[in-house]
């Protein structure tokens, strides 16, 4: 049983995006939100520390 599971695990890819639904939109949203948050923090600093 262990061998069977090992084989099953080995056959998986390192990057695996498969699943019940596509989360690509959410992955992109995470990056966009992070960029927006960092820009927001930078503007906040610039405004109040200037």
């Amino acid at each position: 049983m262990i061998l069977a599971r090992q084989h099953q695990s080995d056959s998986q890819r390192f990057v695996d995006t498969s699943g019940g639904e596509s989360l690509t939109f959410i992955f992109v949203a995470v990056i966009l939100v992070e960029v927006a948050v960092l820009v927001g923090l930078w503007l906040f600093s610039a405004h109040f520390s200037g």
Binding site: D16, V30, I31, V33, E34
Partner: peptide, 20 residues
Amino acid sequence: LPVAMVILSVTLVPFFYRAR
């Protein structure tokens, strides 16, 4: 952290989950 979460979501999370 956000980038790490995206990377884990497409690597270790499916891997551990499917390995049961």
